[in-house]
Amino acid sequence: MDSETRIKSHYRALLRLGLPIIVGQLGIIMVSFIDNVMVGHHSMNELAAASFVNNLLMLLYVFGIAFGYGLTPMVASSDHRQRHFSVGILFRHSLRVNLWMGVLLVGIAVGLIPLFGVFNLPDELRPVVMPYYWIQVGGLILVMGFNTLKQLYDGMSDTKTPMYVTVTGNFLNMVLNYLLIFGIGFLPELGLVGAGLATLMAR
């Protein structure tokens, strides 16, 4: 194999692994974006509340997701050496640690509530913000659990499966948003709370 062919094969392998990861990361961002767009068609106050909550909690999501990235290289190393038992042990311990990190993030999110005044949050938005905030905080632990599974698959060079799950979850979130925000059919019109429940169920 000449050098040019070898370089092309490296690029193909990189794209095959990297593009699904890019799509998956975009999918994580799209959850909040979809919520904001659809809620904005229902109420401006709810859009303001959703933007506040999503931007605030995104810092915790990023911190939690970054914390879980340590699993990928360890799994990749064990998987390359055909040490599948070690992969299982790594996953088990990582899942435990990440779920505890999710609990810690929930604690931090709860601790931020008394500081809402620092953000100059208008009093009239508090009744709109709080139910949505609590629902989204509950989803932190689910995010950490999924992220552990994602890093496991990424470490085994199967980056497509997490991408498919993320894209499917985004589609489900969008459908449930439409049904629960606007109260389609026999479902009640829940507005921003509906968006929060839709995101929680999709996660």
Rank of each mutant, 00 (worst) to 15 (best):
G18M: 05
M30C: 15
L140S: 08
L99I: 13
S86A: 11
N54Q: 10
V129C: 07
H42E: 09
R92H: 10
F85C: 03
H80S: 14
H41D: 04
W134T: 08
F182G: 10
V167F: 06
Y132R: 01
F146I: 14
H42F: 14
I7M: 03
G18T: 04
I135R: 05
F63A: 14
S77V: 06
I181D: 05
E189M: 13
V106H: 04
M101V: 15
P20V: 08
P114M: 12
V129A: 03
M130P: 00
M144I: 04
G169E: 00
M156R: 13
I181S: 09
L56K: 10
A49I: 02
L176G: 04
D2C: 05
M130Q: 07
M58E: 11
G155H: 01
R81Q: 13
A198M: 11
M130R: 04
S157A: 04
M44H: 07
L47D: 00
G111T: 00
L149S: 14
V175F: 04
L152C: 12
F85W: 13
D79E: 08
F146Q: 14
L176Q: 10
A49W: 01
Y61A: 01
Y132T: 00
P122K: 12
P131K: 07
G70D: 07
T199Y: 03
G191L: 07
D158R: 06
V87H: 11
G40Y: 00
R83V: 09
M1W: 11
N36M: 13
N120E: 14
S32L: 05
L187T: 09
I113F: 11
L99W: 06
V103N: 11
F146N: 14
L59H: 10
L99Q: 03
E189Y: 02
V143L: 15
L105H: 00
M163A: 08
T148D: 08
H80T: 14
G196D: 06
A198N: 12
L115M: 12
F91H: 12
G40R: 00
T166V: 13
A109T: 14
G155N: 00
M156D: 01
V193L: 11
R81C: 08
G64Q: 01
I22L: 09
R92F: 06
L142Y: 13
A50S: 15
D2S: 07
A109M: 12
G196P: 14
I184T: 10
T159S: 15
N36V: 13
I135Q: 01
P131L: 06
I29D: 06
V118I: 14
G102A: 09
E189I: 03
S157E: 01
V31Q: 11
G18Y: 01
N54I: 15
L105A: 00
M44W: 04
A66Q: 07
M174V: 12
G191D: 02
G111Q: 00
F116K: 10
A198D: 08
V128H: 02
S94E: 07
A13M: 07
V39R: 00
F116S: 05
V97K: 09
F119I: 12
G145Q: 03
P127R: 03
T72C: 10
N120L: 10
P162W: 00
L187H: 11
T199P: 03
F182D: 02
L26W: 05
R96E: 13
W134C: 11
L149A: 14
A202M: 05
R126Y: 10
L180H: 01
S9H: 12
T199W: 02
R6S: 02
M38W: 12
